[in-house]
Design a protein around this nucleic acid. Structure first.
Lengths: 219, 219
DNA sequence: CTCCGATTTTACCAAATAGTCAAGAATCCG
DNA sequence: CGGATTCTTGACTATTTGGTAAAATCGGAG
């Protein structure tokens, strides 16, 4: 049979090669949507806002993504892999301190370079993770347990101080994403200092120093 | 003259003693609103949702708070002081490690007992802190700088390892509030374990161990 | 150039939502 | 009790919002 499934459904969710215009406009929409959803979450954002930010009429935007939910899902998928990559990159064969130093640095870099991505996830999780809930319970869970196993081995080999690996991962997420998610608060406290050139290095240095050495004085 | 300013404006924003019914219903509304705003933020929440959760008709709810914004502001004010109290309680005359241990423990307790308050602030800050922006730039900023001064002194007295005090405060906020704000994610990773009796102690132990001692192995 | 599908726009609609109003019900106080 | 006040509700309005329909325009292959 092998029906030639020239399946209807417009340009959406089909297998046709996207035109150049489609590729460009979808990208524009996803960027605009990321900014909007990152600030107000799914329910608090409007299609009009996204259309305005994309400099596109609302019906035109809905030509590329039929429904608000479709945009939201696309933005999340578009960002999820990148966001998780640094954790996946922890090398079981590497030096524990160096691997964690690199992980923390990478996460801080991402918070600085793509804060909207972090805020998007924060909003999604705050709302109860209605869309990425499954992902969290499967792939994220597996990845965390895998890397926790690596850290646990490092501890058992006395290459790290005794520490609960999962809580360590949580703390690294918290500390690094905080700089993206609570940027407004950090700016309120630190002012323009945040935009000075050395700030990111200073932040990385502080976070690394605490996580690696703690704050208890060493004699 | 001394006009008897029996100022109009119903029961709102006036100086009259609230009736018992008013006190009770306002409290019910604030609790319901906290739950709702904590999940979806200001824009993503609806008055109907709040009314439903408060088991009250919408017009009745709006009899107590004329506008959605008024409820939101009231909830924020109602929660702000409590949320900041632990930081204010850090005692410059106390033992540094003990003071910070107590601070972290208190913040973790609040995250566990009043997660909605944490999520409410997270949503507000993610949205750009449109309501509490002023507060952040004044009272919070002052408080942080004051306590940062205390920590800085502790460091200079070698009672703490060298650490940037403001980043230390940020990290403590991040690590503790993470357990409230990202509860769904933590449950996805850890499952029912989160509800077991010892979990809070285990969390506190892990966070304290990392912040106080770091993860670098000590010989 | 010309045609045809791809893209964009104009004009809509229905549902959701914030907020109003006036009348009815409950409560308080003398 | 009885009247004044407080509280509650049903019915309503104006606006916002997600989404649709169809006509107009564009752009690229032949």
């Amino acid at each position: 049979m092998e029906a030639k499934v020239e399946d209807r459904g417009g340009i959406f969710a089909n297998h046709r090669q996207p035109t150049r215009i489609q590729a460009v406009n979808r990208e524009i929409i996803l960027e605009a949507a990321l900014e909007v959803f990152a600030i107000h979450g799914f329910r608090g954002s409007t299609v009009d806002q996204i259309a305005a930010k994309a400099e596109m009429s609302k019906p035109n935007l809905l030509y590329y993504f039929r429904r608000k939910q479709d945009i939201y899902r696309a933005v999340l998928e578009h960002t999820l892999a990148d966001w998780l990559a640094p954790l996946a990159a922890i090398d079981p064969a590497g030096d524990p301190i160096e691997e964690l130093r690199r992980y923390i640095t990478l996460k801080l870099d991402m918070s600085a370079k793509r804060p909207a991505a972090s805020r998007l996830f924060a909003n999604e999780v705050l709302a109860g993770a209605p869309v990425i809930g499954d992902f969290l319970e499967t792939r994220l869970r597996e990845l965390v347990h895998e890397k926790a196993g690596v850290i646990r081995r490092w501890v058992s080999e006395s290459r790290l101080a005794p520490v609960d690996p999962v809580h360590l991962i949580f703390m690294i997420w918290a500390a690094t994403q905080h700089y993206a998610d609570f940027d407004v608060q950090i700016r309120a406290v630190l002012g323009s200092q945040v935009d000075k050139p050395g700030f990111r290095e200073q932040t990385a240095q502080a976070v690394l120093s605490i996580v690696l050495n703690g704050i208890r004085p060493r004699m």
